[in-house]
């Protein structure tokens, strides 16, 4: 399983805009780079990222090979109610990983 770093506050006031930062370990092989043997290394990237907040999509992104290795994404969300944020990265070769964090809204 790929390592991830997800940073968001554990608690927030209702209506507060919170910043979320995510990093995931992934080579993001572009599909344009020749390997040591001169043959182009097949593309292997994360193509999609989604953030669900209590099962509703609040942010998503389509990634291209121009995104750097170990993709970093930072975005924001309005703290509406306490619940679960689910982060999913999916991509080439059946790659899919979901991580969840809970947020308490006061």
């Amino acid at each position: 399983m790929a390592r991830t770093l997800i940073n968001l506050p554990r608690t927030a006031r209702r209506g507060e805009v919170i910043e979320i930062r995510t990093l995931i370990q992934h080579v993001m092989e572009t599909g344009y780079r020749p390997g040591a043997d001169g043959v182009v290394v097949p593309r292997d990237i994360v193509t999609r990222f989604t953030c669900l907040y209590n099962n509703e999509e609040v942010f998503s992104a389509e990634l291209a090979p121009a995104i750097a290795a170990n993709p970093f994404l930072s975005f924001s969300v309005v703290a509406a109610e306490s619940g679960i944020l689910a982060f999913t990265w999916s991509g080439d070769n059946g790659f899919e990983q979901t991580e969840t964090r809970s947020l308490t809204v006061t």
């Binding site: 805009v17 919170i18 992104a61 995104i67 970093f72 930072s74 975005f75 924001s76 969300v77």
Partner: peptide
């Protein structure tokens, strides 16, 4: 629901 239209990568 994003609250702010800002994206960093």
């Amino acid at each position: 629901r994003a609250g702010r239209a800002r994206l960093a990568t």
